[in-house]
Design a protein around this nucleic acid. Structure first.
Lengths: 387, 387
DNA sequence: TTGAAAGCGCTAACAA
DNA sequence: TTGTTAGCGCTTTCAA
């Protein structure tokens, strides 16, 4: 179906299409013509020309100098006369020359691509997106570009992503390990790839790492609840094979031991991973014959899911809650949610710093940076045990 | 300071360092030795060997075949005898060979790097991190790696990032435009770079684009408040030069006009951008001589900041609020926050699909996809005008 | 200070 | 089916 008007909006099943020359309707649904644009531009179209990019040779020819001189100017090497520099820059500007970093890297002796890869469980999890942000801040200072990807609980994907980044010759990979153990990375490291871990420590692989003080933070959280008189404290956490989850569980157990409180197996749920599964787990706890008077939620999504469950039962003001990891609007809830806050952006910054430090000096001893967590009292953690 | 134990944790000003052989103390603060690890591994250390990566030539030599045969096997080309395929694969596995995509790309005729770049205002903004997620889902299907970076209100940085990605020969850039106009991209496009915009439409550049129906969504939100009897409705939005912000303002104005309601300039704030500035703006409105009975917050951070302001004045149950763009825990607040929800993940998916469609067929007419928004009633938007 | 030749790791085009 | 040669766009090395 062709339309003579150059551009238009068409409403179709809730979706608009806005095409240059062709009006496209999806199948099904009654199409409604919404309005017609009449603007026309004579700027180049997306498919125009595609004449191949100018190379250094083209610039050299236009400037009347040798290839090598252009290379020197582009790389800002010293020892080129100001006259030639100006000539080359004019020619490069005229041709819209773009230095090809991939070709440059191929020939260069240090073989650095000024590119790193980041692998998270999920780039859209607020914790990880903040870490990502922190990494970017440091990378930016070195004009390093950052690949980012999500593993999504798929263990094969961790290896695939490492492989994909390795094939693209990244200088370093910053990652959250999910696979049971990381010794498969030894091969990559022999090839000169730097690997830094964030959030969780690797297994079977000695490398730089930045983590939160999970055990101490969980201990603090639990002790906080114990201090308010709770003895029926539930633990709702991630799968045991996730190292942070098991460390947080260890902190929980340690606090109970220190207080001489019993750990009640029926109040321990280590199978929550998403908001939804956490809601389910907490509902089950609340509806059980021995409901907890307090809950320690060991991860941000789990805390959010726990809030929902408490609200569903109208218990948000009666059952105490402390979460691990802060989240957006935790302070705006009623009651505000008490959390052990991490500093994800700082974690990201440090991980990037460690990565670049090792790129610069491969022989440094490996370092594990533990970033402290902070208890933030907001109300939910200060509720006393009911009756 | 040297220590004989191989690894240790040291607590110093709240930061732990965990080094292979050297105990490092930061300056200042009382250092407390926390515990000592005794594990020792004989796996390769990070700085080990760095013997250069094996190339196809090495594989060819080990397998006793020619370079080209290895290339054929690595690229899964047909026409190689099973015998040689096995030989080559064995040799490649033995050497931990990694195909160098950067070198491959340099020589290949299509010159595709299987890499795209994404440029957002802030990768840690939940809206953008979800868009990022959507893009990744589609890119994953094509084994394409994704660079992600933030502009951070710095207009120069938009161009710098485009430049940085262009230098790395990405196949496409998916971006949120911030600079006043995008005609500088014509040069890049001539070189074959595909550009797709998300969230905001570009100016001075005809390209594929995926946006939310900002004007219609804002109109719906405002009409919703008008329908509940409000006439003193405040608009709190982003800077005027951001196209989404002005479209949402247009929708706001349109709804007022349709209802025959007056637009009160003193209730319009178009200078909010962050959570904090929104809180300030809303506090000023609430404390003014003519406070609004309802607020339309035109962006996710602004809505969050508005919630905070209402809570600070204890007005969250008296002044109505509708936000543009959903956010985490909006349903768990008291009252739940009524929003016009976008579908960021879907926006990301479509943007990626558009990008790949254009990579495959550069001559398609440009398309603007408008993804519909949905009003979600949660309580805050249904509060009637007080008294 | 400038340039010519070689070659980074790979694939295209062609030959055997 | 396999291999040889040339060369992608650039930097290195070395000579002028």
């Amino acid at each position: 179906m062709l339309v003579d008007k150059p551009k238009m909006h068409v409403h179709d099943n809730g979706v608009f299409y806005f095409y240059g020359q062709t009006l496209v309707l999806s199948t099904g649904g009654s199409a409604i013509l919404t309005f017609v644009m009449t603007t026309l531009s004579n700027a180049p179209t997306p498919g125009e020309a595609l004449r191949s990019r100018p190379t250094m040779r083209d610039v050299a020819a236009l400037a009347g100098v040798s290839l090598k001189t252009v290379s020197r100017v582009v790389n800002r090497e010293s020892g080129v006369s100001g006259d030639l520099v100006a000539k080359v820059e004019r020619a490069a500007g005229h041709l819209d020359y773009r230095h090809d970093l991939t070709a440059s890297n191929l020939r260069r002796s240090d073989r650095k691509t000024a590119t790193i890869g980041v692998i998270f469980e999920d780039v859209s999890n607020p914790f990880f997106s903040s870490v990502h942000r922190g990494i970017e801040e440091i990378a930016r200072e070195r004009a390093v570009a950052v690949f980012a990807a999500s593993v999504d609980e798929n263990p094969e994907r961790e290896k695939d992503l490492v492989f994909a980044f390795s094939q693209r010759r990244v200088d370093a990979i910053i990652m959250t390990p999910t696979v049971r153990q990381q010794s498969y990375l030894h091969h990559e490291r022999r090839g000169g790839l730097v690997v830094v871990f964030v959030d969780r420590e690797p297994r079977g692989f000695d490398a730089d790492c930045v983590v939160t003080d999970n055990e101490a933070g969980a201990e603090t959280a639990t002790a906080h609840l114990l201090g308010h008189g709770h003895r029926l404290i539930a633990f709702v956490g991630d799968y045991e094979n996730i190292s942070t989850a098991s460390q947080r569980f260890a902190g929980f157990a340690k606090a109970l031991r220190s207080a001489g409180a019993a750990m009640l197996p029926e109040l321990v749920r280590r199978d929550a991973h998403t908001k939804e599964s956490a809601t389910e787990a907490v509902l089950a706890l609340l509806d059980s014959p021995t409901p907890p008077t307090a809950i320690f939620a060991a991860q941000n999504l789990i805390t959010m899911g726990s809030v929902r469950a408490l609200q569903m039962r109208g218990l948000q003001h009666s059952v105490a809650l402390v979460g691990f990891d802060d989240f957006s609007m935790a302070d705006a809830l009623d009651p505000g949610v008490t959390v052990v806050a991490q500093d994800p952006r700082e974690i990201g910054r440090r991980a990037a710093q460690l990565a670049f430090a090792r790129i610069d000096s491969p022989d440094l001893p490996t370092a594990v940076h533990v970033v402290p967590s902070v208890l933030i009292r907001r109300g939910s953690g200060e509720i006393p045990p009911g009756r």
